[in-house]
Design a protein around this nucleic acid. Structure first.
Lengths: 253, 253
DNA sequence: CCTAGTTTGCTGGTCTGACCAGTCATCGCA
DNA sequence: TGCGATGACTGGTCAGACCAGCAAACTAGG
């Protein structure tokens, strides 16, 4: 047998060719975030295709989060900076349409977030540490005022941990999966939960994580994060998910 | 301050409305995978919009992996079963566009793969365990025959670990990041490396991981995986990356 | 001279109507 | 009964047109 491998003889759509070329120009760095592509009318000349074809290609790139189009005088298609948003969308869509269970998402989040805490404990800058402290302070101040502003401060705290991990990939994926979990939880959130008690518990857990990070205790920060997330989502897990969490080092009742 | 929150006054695009409606019909289960949507010409009547608008909407849904269109007599847009492919795609795109450093990718891979090993140790089925054993056996047999078939067996071994983790999300992201790392390594791989020694070392590390998984030792499997990946990529890391790996629990010289 | 309002030329968003190239069910012929 | 021609679909592509909005350039008034 020779080593020749035949490529699938898939029909080559015109708009796909356009997508490929622009996509390649973006990922290879020829055009960078913030740059503007030529206008649709100009692109249709450059690619020698009609405007609907150009537009379909731009729609695909837009759905991938690579570009955004603005009308007006200095408008046009613009290359976007990478953002976790489209990744989060994929997570959510995938989870909703069927295959991912909440357990899987929670496992994934535990893995990412505990690692981020480990990294943050070792690599944080003074500024990042004080940002975490600020967020904790705001949580303490808002714990009586209602869940909205408290949740914002909570999110800020975790965001500053991601930032202190000095790993963008971890940050992006972590935030994407967190957002996806939030959306799924919205569907089944038990409205009767005692909110003020939940806030107190969140605050307590975050304080523990913060303390470990502040003293540079990587292992401790990772453990605290694991247990915090595990106990937060405990009630939503199926049996296999719980066993998995224990394998990952989280303590479950 | 009252609690009124204003929604961003974003312009409502016609094709977006079409996407929303079809998307909602899919995720809510009104139409299921395998079902066919009406043809473009029929949809344009149902939505009271023109065909280009319908087509742009369908392109977006297609880019999200929700539908696929087929021409011909019994053709038309068809709802697809959920597949990890689009998630993997947006993941790879993100990794590329965000211009991530090799250190970040390696950190991320260590996090995912060690977790997969922990999960695999706890959750593997007998079949999955024997698949790992088979792969190890093939590696031993091929270690003298050259790096190509050896590498294939190596990949098979790791793939069976991902499968045994029982977490599709972990698997998808892990394989995506592994692929990204391979692409980056291709650019800077030192061709002079002693291949047969490298193969011996890989085999040795994989044996250690396999033994820990087989005896259900989650913590041990995770540690072995961390150290295996860390020592494999050690020479390519910058100083910060190495510090991060130590924070994650890997041993580095 | 400076400012405020208007003009003008661009952008993307949408529509109409048309043609092509496949595919598949069906009908009619051998 | 079997099979090939036919026609009614499908999506893919094109051409040309109009609209609404935005921003810079220009102009008239202070």
């Amino acid at each position: 047998m020779n080593n020749v491998t035949f490529r699938p003889a898939v029909a080559v759509l015109t708009y796909e060719r356009v997508v490929e070329q622009i996509e390649h120009a973006i990922v290879s760095g020829v055009i960078r975030p913030g740059d503007r592509l030529a206008s649709e009318r100009e692109l249709m000349v450059q690619f020698s295709v009609s405007r609907p074809t150009i537009r379909e290609a731009l729609r695909v790139l837009q759905a991938q989060g690579l570009i955004a189009s603005k009308p007006g005088g200095r408008g046009g298609p613009e290359v976007l900076a990478p953002s976790p948003e489209t990744l989060a969308r994929s997570f959510t869509t995938m989870a909703r349409v069927a295959s991912l269970s909440l357990s899987e998402l929670v496992q994934f989040r535990i893995v990412l977030e505990s690692s981020a805490c480990q990294l943050a404990a070792a690599l944080h800058t003074p500024e990042q540490l004080s940002a975490m402290g600020d967020a904790i302070g705001r949580m303490e101040a808002e714990v009586a005022n209602g869940s909205d502003s408290f949740n914002r401060a909570d999110l800020d705290f975790h965001a500053s941990i991601w930032a202190a991990s000095h790993n963008d990939l971890l940050q992006i994926c972590g935030q994407a999966v967190s957002g996806s979990i939030l959306k799924l939880m919205d569907d089944r959130m038990d409205r009767a939960t005692d909110k003020s008690r939940a806030m107190q518990e969140s605050l307590e857990r975050d304080r523990t994580i913060f303390a470990a990070i502040a003293e540079g205790n990587s292992a401790g920060a990772g453990d605290s994060a694991r247990n915090a997330i595990a106990s937060y989502f405990e009630q939503y897990l199926d049996e296999d998910g719980a066993r998995g969490l224990q394998a990952l080092g989280a303590e479950i009742d």
